[in-house]
Computed example of a mutant assay.
Amino acid sequence: MLEFLGSQTHLHITTWVVALILFFVAVSMQKGSKGRKITHMILRLFYILIIATGVALFITALDYGQGMLYGFKLLFGLGVIAFMELVLVRSNKGKSTGGMWAGFIICLIVVLVLGFKLPMGFQFF
């Protein structure tokens, strides 16, 4: 099964895109609403899918000889997921989310730049 996940860059990208859409939908919904809670739970399922496909791609990427950069991408990707969760949880509790948004944006930019720069990704740069 690891070979299947490791060769499926498109599967990983699809889970990321769906998760980002779900995240922004959840953020835009009314705090404490039932729809937001359901969207948040579906988003948590996508976190698991992202992590599973990402780890499989990381293991596959070790063959490319740039394991350290892929390791940084993995860590910043986990940071994106953590900040997404923190934004939703802190906003539900009525706490400030400015720092969490900043962390989310920084981690997301680093992940996208590394993803487009490294050999397994799409070559935009």
Rank of each mutant, 00 (worst) to 15 (best):
F4K: 09
F4M: 15
F4C: 07
L5I: 13
G6P: 12
H10L: 13
L11D: 02
H12T: 07
I13V: 14
T14S: 11
T15H: 09
A19K: 04
A19N: 12
I21S: 10
L22F: 10
L22Q: 05
F23D: 00
F24T: 06
V25E: 02
V27Q: 03
V27L: 07
S28M: 06
Q30S: 04
S33G: 10
S33M: 08
S33A: 11
K37C: 03
T39Q: 01
I42T: 01
F46D: 01
Y47M: 13
I48Q: 10
L49R: 02
A52T: 12
T53I: 07
T53D: 08
T53W: 11
V55W: 01
F58W: 15
A61D: 15
L62S: 12
D63C: 06
D63V: 08
Y64C: 00
G65T: 06
G65P: 15
G65S: 12
F72V: 15
K73M: 13
K73F: 06
F76M: 13
F76N: 05
F76P: 05
L78F: 15
G79T: 05
V80M: 04
V80T: 01
F83R: 01
E85W: 04
E85T: 03
L88D: 04
L88I: 14
V89W: 00
K93D: 12
K95F: 13
T97Q: 12
G99A: 00
M100R: 01
F104A: 04
F104I: 09
I105F: 15
I106G: 04
C107P: 04
F116Q: 13
K117R: 05
L118T: 15
P119C: 08
M120I: 15
G121I: 13
F122T: 15
Q123V: 12
